[in-house]
Design a protein around this nucleic acid. Structure first.
Lengths: 352, 352
DNA sequence: GACTCATCCGACAAGGTTGTCAAACGTGGC
DNA sequence: GCCACGTTTGACAACCTTGTCGGATGAGTC
């Protein structure tokens, strides 16, 4: 790492305010305010004088001061609480919300919580202290009751990805149970009777729902129920790899795998490759990921649509901001099955 | 998509202010202010009364109003202008900056520009109107001179990934030329004499630098210079795939490829797979990507370290905010070569 | 010329907060 | 009981803006 530096320092110039512009244009500050906000009732001559002064001084309105005084108090900023800004799911959500917010000149404050409940609360508090107009929250904690005060104070809040607990509020979810169920049906359709389950932390509601979907499909297809084939609480690629290896080396290993999450799927693939079984053991993952169709075999997935989820959540939030005071709304988005190869591998002919 | 809704609406409760707390605690608002800010000179009895009132009213300080009045004017928010919040490079940068900012209770406003110069400017203006304390900008425009006013007004600005043009300012870059040069040397070491170049939009400075590195290495190793082997201005996976196919189907195709960017690398892989040449034609990509070591062959890359870049940039920004007024600093981070297989494929014995 | 009326404009207060300053209070020494 | 001194406290102004309101101006009508 190379750092170059050269010595210079210029004095800071104060930023111009309405008062400065007014002085230069020879009008009152209220008139400048009128021009800045495009209000009527200013003669063209004064508009021109003010506009000239604004450019000359490079005046920037102070939206914080404006929001403080303005009747509706809007700051034109919304807050987003996400699992991890660096993970593709969170960042796709963020990006979709950004695109929707952008149409309304609204900016986004975003933060990661990393499955830390305390962080979720401090982040919400920090946003609230900045008086964000609204919140979009992918909750990690076991109770979002603390958000009731925010919502009642007029900060609309939409939960995404995971439902809120301890409070009734707007949320946009994915059909986790249905998607997981479909995955197992898909594998059963290919002839598998013995499907392993690889799951995320059980405290996460979505993981619970996906396991419920797996369970339901097993019942529906009469697949044998063997707790030894269920690996739970896998939260990293490494954990998933290790668990997959363990599963496949057991006495009576599954002929197919359902991986309930992104990183878990990747861990499973790494394990399959290590054991040389990627062409033998079927695999369906929940949640699509980049490169899934460049791997060999190409990886079949149950895809969520985080961009759509973000868009729907943002649109709902803005409806609320536009005055929609109807009761809490719960939207469930469907999943899409993408067969690419790995999920269509048939069981070895000897398998029961 | 299923939406459920039920009809309820509660009236909004006004948010408590210093005045409300003061009234409840039976003190002046200034005393409450002192307690909130942990200033000395308040008797324990009053501190207790104020604290009780704060909890009872669920008081949230208004940091915007506070920043307006406070001497240093700090809002404890910084702005980040990035290429695309949804792409892994941008989001890794964002996340690293977040972690550094988090230690100081600073929040982040972030936005995507998508190679749109106009958007870069409107985003910076929007941040400036919110009076962010500092800016971290991955510039796309051809001139960042417009930022001089911001910087002179006391908003420290650090450029990342790409150097600013038209202004001398802090920046944190990656050694693009050196990394590209290393890639070609690596391929030449494996015996290749004929290395194709797949590059991003030539208006992007980093793309220029990487091409310069490619060129330099070709000269150093005496590799033949054939413009027909250079595909420029590839900005999507599809464009890269098409260009790669074209290159490899030409009369005298290269035996190795250097892909100057993430998406371009992925496009090249897709093309190689389509042509069945992934085991025959060597490939080194610039910038690592998830799954690179699960593909077959595993993909050799020149890795940048966006997390480190973000951390270094954030630290520099906070140094500036802490009063460091020394001259503009330019930091260049090294790249790392990660040989995984694709870059070590040897040319077919018949190749010149 | 007196009147109405609409338009344009600025004085003033307010939004939630903090910096300044001086008043009030308590303590200790004589 | 008086004074000096340090601590605690609140009144007030200010930060940058916008909402309210009333005054000034000019045109149009009788």
């Amino acid at each position: 790492m190379v750092t170059q530096s050269d010595p210079v320092a210029a004095p800071y110039r104060q930023r111009a305010t309405l008062r400065d512009v007014a002085a230069m244009a020879g009008v009152s500050i209220k008139t400048v305010s009128r021009v800045v906000n495009g209000e009527s009732g200013v003669t063209p001559a004064k508009v021109a004088a003010v506009t000239r002064a604004i450019h000359q001084l490079d005046y920037r309105p102070n939206v914080s001061a404006s929001a403080l005084r303005r009747a509706n108090r809007r700051t034109a900023v919304i807050g987003m609480v996400l699992e991890d800004l660096a993970n593709p799911f969170s960042s796709a959500l963020l990006r979709a919300v950004e695109d929707t917010a952008n149409e309304r000149q609204v900016l986004i404050l975003a933060g990661s919580v990393d499955e830390d409940q305390g962080r979720e609360r401090t982040l919400v508090r920090a946003f609230s202290e900045r008086r964000v107009d609204g919140l979009i929250v992918a909750p990690v904690g076991e109770d979002q009751g603390y958000l009731r005060a925010e919502i009642e104070a007029g900060t609309p809040t939409v939960f995404v990805d995971r439902p809120p607990q301890g409070i009734r509020a707007d949320c946009v979810l994915c059909d986790n149970e249905g998607g997981a169920r479909t995955a197992v049906h898909h594998l059963a359709d290919a002839g598998h009777r013995h499907v392993g389950y690889l799951g995320d932390l059980r405290i996460i509601p979505t993981a619970q729902q996906r396991f419920a979907g797996y369970q339901r499909a097993c019942l529906e297809r009469g697949l044998p129920w063997r707790p030894a084939d269920h690996a739970h609480d896998l939260h990293t690629v490494e954990e998933a790899t290790a668990a997959t290896v363990r599963l496949l080396r057991s006495a009576d290993p599954p002929t197919a795998l359902f991986a309930s999450q992104n990183l878990v799927t990747i861990g499973a693939i790494a394990a399959l490759q290590r054991l040389g079984l990627e062409g033998t053991v079927a695999l369906v993952g929940f949640d699509d990921f980049p490169m899934a169709d460049l791997l060999k075999p190409r990886v079949s997935v149950i895809a969520q649509d985080p961009a759509r989820m973000g868009r729907v959540a943002a649109e709902l939030l803005f409806q609320r901001l536009d005055g929609d005071r109807s009761g809490p709304r719960r939207t469930v988005l469907p999943t899409t099955t993408i067969p690419r190869g790995s999920g269509e591998i048939r069981p070895p002919s000897g398998a029961r």
